[in-house]
Design a protein around this nucleic acid. Structure first.
Lengths: 261, 261
DNA sequence: CAGTGGTCTAGACCACACT
DNA sequence: GTGTGGTCTAGACCACTGC
């Protein structure tokens, strides 16, 4: 861009244009936004390589360094994955060795890797209508269609996690219990492959609670057993909420692990 | 560094030297390590400005861009704070508006800012000897001197957090209950100002538990009330553990908030 | 105004992966 | 060897701060 001013095909003028921009943002942020748009639009699918830095630099009429900085930030946010000598790839839950994307429950002895995969049992899976709480969390209106799933995850035969999931019906039309239980990998990988919805971020609210009778029965504990209640909202690109999940975790042989920077 | 090869005063040869390095690391990582050393050595105190990028570049005989990348990483780790037009500053707990460094407990309504500071009551503060568990967490030998503190934090008059702290006696000699309760700001700020120990990172293990009788009394709950048990190990520079903290959180009007990237 | 960090560029070379 | 991302440099200019 030595002589040609940047015309990056978006509405906001670049800083090189020298015009009074109402909302100034650095060039690399604009490039980042453009790459993000392509990701959301599905121009490059999860697992695929995006064009090389040089190609993107030519496409956006900026230097490689500017593209690099944009990609750096997207890689830091786990949306892209850089592999030296091979290229830059769209992050994916599939073909990924991590067993759990957001689950922070760890066995007291050993780690998630040594423990092996959980056994999953679907208790319930049905289409229903969003109540006020679910609707608010998912950005829907009360009464809109949602898919509700209840399941139990067990480690070494011991029920450890009871989860209730709510998914917006519009985005996950036709999701069945068979599909949930048949898919061998992480649930988020299944949602990504089957419905093209990639979860990017999640918020959790954690409390200590006592289970009701049904919950206690499903987790094979007494109603006096304290459990971790984890309410998670998962978001896809652009902070659009796509899942509400309420988990009850037994913490007698596991614990919730967190690192604070 | 157009003609002069980098001699950055450390033992590992720079990449520009062209020698077979046994443990190759990029120049900017070496610079980062040197800055980190100066931070640990106290060459620049918390709150102070470090030399400008140009000065550091001259000092280390590298380009400004290389220093910039090293500082970028340190800033991302919250060890340094960049302020455009002013300089780069050593992070500090003091003179910082955040009330809590690591506490993730939020009121169900509003946020930490609206709630105001907690009332702190020191139950106990004494010098004792590390048992096996404390010694392991703090990297000490069993029987070494530790300072133990027990205190209750209340919000709006309601006891909400019961904390037990263990600090290595060698580093915090002379810490008293008066000092703990008199200091108006966050405890970590006090430890930083009075003892020059800056907590940089922390790990937490979370469970749901029931309190024993004494704990229940101090938190003014029944022994059947489920509570969050948070075991935190805090580290200073170089991942040296400097505090073990076991907290019991009431989660009837508060919750533990977490964000998963 | 000078000094600081922030952005952007262009070019060189290195490390890695595939073919 | 070719192409990818990774590092390093040098220089220009912008934006913010404070004198």
């Amino acid at each position: 861009m030595s002589s040609i001013p940047p015309s990056t095909a978006d509405s906001t003028p670049g800083p090189g244009a020298g015009l009074p921009a109402p909302a100034f943002s650095p060039l690399y942020q604009q490039i980042k936004g453009l790459i993000l748009q392509s990701l959301q639009a599905g121009e490059w699918k999860p697992g695929e390589a995006i064009p090389s830095e040089m190609d993107l630099a030519a496409r956006f009429r900026v230097s490689q360094g500017t593209v690099r900085k944009a990609i750096d930030e997207l890689a830091a946010e786990n949306l892209l994955l850089r592999r030296q000598g091979k290229g830059t790839f769209v992050s994916t839950h599939a073909e990924q060795q991590v067993q759990y994307r957001f689950l922070r429950l760890m066995p007291d002895r050993g780690d998630a890797a040594t423990e092996g995969p959980a056994e999953r049992r679907i208790i319930d899976c049905r289409s229903t209508r969003a109540n006020a709480e679910v609707a608010r969390a998912l950005g829907l209106r009360t009464g809109e269609s949602v898919i509700q799933v209840r399941r139990v995850l067990s480690f070494h035969g011991q029920p450890t996690i009871l989860e209730d999931l709510w998914l917006p019906g519009a985005a996950f039309k036709g999701l069945t219990a068979v599909q949930m239980s048949d898919y061998p990998g992480p649930t988020y990988a299944m949602l990504e492959l089957e419905y093209g919805v990639r979860m990017v971020r999640a918020d959790e609210k954690i409390r200590a609670v006592l289970p009701d009778e049904e919950q206690a029965m499903l987790l094979q504990v007494t109603p006096q057993t304290p459990l971790l209640s984890v309410a998670r909202t998962s978001y896809t690109y652009n902070d659009v909420p796509m899942e509400l999940r309420r988990g009850l975790y037994r913490t007698d042989s596991h614990h919730y692990r967190n690192t604070l920077g």
